[in-house]
Design a protein around this nucleic acid. Structure first.
Lengths: 133, 133
DNA sequence: CAGCATCCAGCTTGATACTG
DNA sequence: CAGTATCAAGCTGGATGCTG
């Protein structure tokens, strides 16, 4: 086995996602939510403007992207840079903290992407086993 | 409104979460969803029975846990071992694939937990800056 | 271009009750 | 214990229209 840190989930941290009332739960949800993860992932490549981001994150609506961006900015993961030009130009980019979060997220995303064949196979197996009952 | 197929600066993978129609998107959502992540995190410590899991994942309802577990089992991330005893006993545990996913997820979770002070500070800053307008 | 406000369909969720 | 079934409520998110 590789040298994975074999710690049991609860360490002596002040914050614990497993507790319902912990604020870390909320932040984790912003990060892993439907659009949060994809937004952070897209921004990991570099700064993007609002509509660039929208095209990049396939399927997101204007409203949801705006909402997502606000939540991430509030959590200090994304920096918003508005230029008072006409037409307006606004760039979004990851903060150093956001970059670290995005890296860990991307590690998960890429892993899942890389193992989709296994997942799909498991799915098929599960479904046929069920159908046979 | 078709999706962008082009990959970004990413690697050359057949699956791409950024595309709306990619099945990896669904799996990623099972994994990072409201309860999926916490469930995988809890199971990373070892096998747990249904109600143990419920207690561990604070706030999850019976129904949501059941639903979550089914999705994860179908995706091949969790293994369900039922013993036909009375009263019934069912153990859930991660598959090897599930363990790898859980590790990456936990890396993210622990990172977020460890930086919550920064997040909370950013939040406060954002809110007071807004309120001042 | 970069958004905010509003409306509302429908999906998600939580209670509750019930089964094996 | 380990779930399933059902139903109401509420939140999510898309469409639309408007502003600077």
């Amino acid at each position: 086995m590789d040298g994975i840190q074999e710690r049991t989930a609860e360490q002596d941290l002040p914050y614990n996602v497993f507790a319902k009332a912990c604020p870390s739960r909320g932040t984790l949800e912003h990060v892993t939510g439907r659009w949060g993860g994809l937004t952070l992932g897209a921004l990991h490549e570099g700064p993007l403007r609002f509509n660039e981001l929208r095209r990049r994150v396939d399927g997101v609506s204007e409203k949801m992207l705006s909402q997502t961006l606000h939540a991430l900015e509030r959590d200090g993961l994304v920096h918003r840079e508005a230029q008072p030009t006409n037409p307006p130009r606004v760039d979004y980019e990851l903060t150093p903290l956001g970059r670290e979060v995005a890296e860990r997220l991307l590690s998960l995303i890429h892993f899942v992407e890389g193992r989709m064949d296994d997942v799909l196979a498991a799915r098929e197996h599960y479904d046929t086993a069920r159908g046979a009952l």
